[in-house]
């Protein structure tokens, strides 16, 4: 018994169309509410006051100001944490 080729093509296209529809609707459903809320939060930025470290004006030496911005060494913090962990 031969399977009609037109029917095969129709079924194939139907499967593909269903897959495309499912993937589009599925991708929206898979976004968790938490991610959506994060995106919404990103869309409406809340001002976070960051204290400015330096005061730049026309007479500032930018090279010196930049060099002064070297972050501290963090090893002291980790030394303290390791000592505390050792007391467990």
């Amino acid at each position: 018994m031969k399977f009609p080729k037109v029917l095969i093509i129709i079924i194939f296209l139907g499967v593909m169309a269903t897959f495309v529809i499912m993937s589009r609707t599925g991708s929206n459903k898979m976004v968790s509410p938490q991610i959506v809320s994060q995106n919404q939060a990103a869309a409406t930025p809340t001002p976070t006051p960051t204290p400015v470290l330096i005061n730049i004006n026309q007479s500032s030496n930018l090279e010196t100001e930049t060099k002064n911005l070297t972050p501290d060494d963090f090893s002291g913090d980790f030394k303290v944490l390791r000592e505390e962990a050792g007391r467990f």
Binding site: T50, V52, L69, F74
Partner: peptide
């Protein structure tokens, strides 16, 4: 504490570049 410090440094770097 440390990321706040790094964040302030980054804000300052951006200010310096703007001034330049």
């Amino acid at each position: 504490k440390r990321t706040d410090e790094l964040d302030r440094i980054m804000v300052a770097q951006a200010l310096i570049l703007d001034e330049y």
